[in-house]
């Protein structure tokens, strides 16, 4: 949209700090971190630091699904205690003690 020119500076002057301040909302709105605001788009296109940052953060968010895999297993003791808890519930019910909470 902006005419091509040889000027390496971004057309809109926002700093890296200003760009990065918008990141939490950008990620939250689109999920992809790709902005619509032309100032932000321009900065992202011309700033290597910030585009690398966005790429990395998006990558981390994507990789998080790797952690969805349940890799840890509780010890057998946990189920034993659950059964004990359930059994004592039943005993309470059978004990004709309606006021028991």
């Amino acid at each position: 949209m902006t005419s091509q020119n040889s000027n390496p500076k971004p057309p809109a002057t926002i700093s890296c700090a200003e760009f990065q301040e918008q990141l939490p909302d950008l990620f939250a709105s689109g999920g992809s971190g790709e902005p619509e605001d032309p100032c932000l788009v321009a900065h992202l296109k011309t700033c290597e630091n910030c585009s690398a940052l966005v790429r990395d953060l998006q990558y981390i968010a994507d990789q998080a699904s790797l952690l969805l895999q349940p890799t840890h297993e509780p010890s057998d003791n946990v189920w034993k205690k659950i059964q004990e808890g359930l059994n004592s519930d039943r005993t309470d019910e059978a004990g004709q003690n309606p006021s028991h909470s």
Binding site: A52, R55, D56, I60, L66, L67, T71
Partner: peptide
Amino acid sequence: QLTGSVDRVAL
């Protein structure tokens, strides 16, 4: 760059 370099254990 991080891309492509992170495995589940590291994460």
